[in-house]
Amino acid sequence: MSTVEHTPSESAPDAQKWVDVQASDDFAQLKHRLRKFVFPVSGLFLAWYLLYVLLADYAHGFMSTKVIGNINVGLIFGLLQFVSTFVITTLYVRHANKHLDPLAEKLRGEIEGDGK
């Protein structure tokens, strides 16, 4: 796309270029896709963790209620924190591979000048 040939790592794009890219639609789209995933999900898992901590801290009776044999609500709740962590990790990787990486790669190619 560019008129000047650059080799990827040696060219330091000038200041104007960073500003132009920041103002471009592609970049706005990339930023939107990243933030619309990470901000709500971060809020969600922190709230879920806080709920768990508050229950473990202030609702001993409820958490000690036995469900199956010696396995109680608190243990299940704790193990669910593991499950949610693994699930969020997997979902984020899928989101990033599908929606973030291709756009980031395209922009990087344009900036570093190997998008010929």
Binding site: A12, P13, A15, W18, V19, V21, Q22, F27, L30, K31, L34, A104, L107, R108, I111, E112
Partner: peptide, 16 residues
Amino acid sequence: PVKQAEMEVRSLTGAG
């Protein structure tokens, strides 16, 4: 603003 633009673009795209 220029440095902020550079940091934001670099952090999200990996350019440079």
